[in-house]
Amino acid sequence: MQYDLISRLNHWIIAISMIGMLLFGLYLAYGALEREARGPLIDIHRSVGILVLIYGTWRVAWRMISGRSPP
């Protein structure tokens, strides 16, 4: 079973982005940061999260358009 290049790139970009956001969120929650230092980082986390959500929506739409590869 072989997926096209765009499907593979979509998969890996989302996978790396989600893992990165999870690690960043855990750092914000449990890291030794002062309250004042967290504010700008939380804003960045929120902005990047919205971009990942938009890209994830693109990935789902691409999967629906391109369909599944044959078994």
Score class of each variant (00 low, 15 high):
Gly56Tyr: 08
Gly31Pro: 02
Ile65Tyr: 11
Leu53Met: 10
Ala37Pro: 00
Trp12Ile: 07
Val48Ala: 09
Ile6Asp: 15
Ser66His: 13
Met18Phe: 00
Tyr30Arg: 04
His45Gly: 02
Leu5His: 05
Gly67Met: 10
Gly20Ser: 12
Leu9Tyr: 14
Met64Trp: 10
Phe24Trp: 05
Pro70Glu: 15
His11Ile: 00
Asn10Asp: 14
Leu5Lys: 10
Trp12Phe: 14
Ile6Phe: 14
Leu26Ser: 11
Gly56Glu: 13
Ala32Asn: 13
Met1Lys: 07
Arg35Ser: 12
Ala37Glu: 14
Ser69Val: 13
Arg8Phe: 00
Ala37Trp: 03
Ala29Arg: 03
Leu22Gln: 04
Pro40Met: 01
Ala15Gly: 03
Arg68Thr: 08
Ser17Lys: 01
Leu22Trp: 01
Asp43Glu: 04
Ala15Asn: 05
Leu22Tyr: 04
Leu33Phe: 07
Val60Ser: 14
Ser17Val: 05
Ala29Gly: 05
Ile14Lys: 03
Trp12Arg: 10
Ile14Arg: 03
Tyr27Gln: 00
Ile65Cys: 09
Asn10Arg: 02
Met1Ser: 14
Leu9Ser: 13
Ala32His: 02
Gly49Pro: 05
Met21Pro: 02
Leu22Thr: 12
Gly25Arg: 01
Leu41Ala: 03
Glu36Pro: 00
Ile14His: 12
His45Leu: 02
Ala61Arg: 06
Gly39Lys: 10
Ala61Gly: 10
Ala61Phe: 15
Ser66Gln: 12
Gly31Ala: 02
Tyr55His: 08
Gly49Cys: 05
Trp62Tyr: 15
Glu34Asn: 09
Leu9His: 12
Ile6Arg: 13
Arg35His: 04
Arg59Tyr: 08
Phe24His: 11
Arg38His: 01
Phe24Gln: 02
Ala37Ile: 00
Val60Asn: 06
Ala15Trp: 06
Ile13Gly: 12
Ala32Trp: 01
Leu9Cys: 12
Ser47Ile: 04
Ile19Arg: 00
Ser17Phe: 08
Asn10Ser: 11
Thr57Ser: 15
Arg68Ala: 15
Leu23Tyr: 06
Asn10Met: 08
Leu41Cys: 01
Ile42Gly: 03
Ile6Thr: 12
Trp62Val: 06
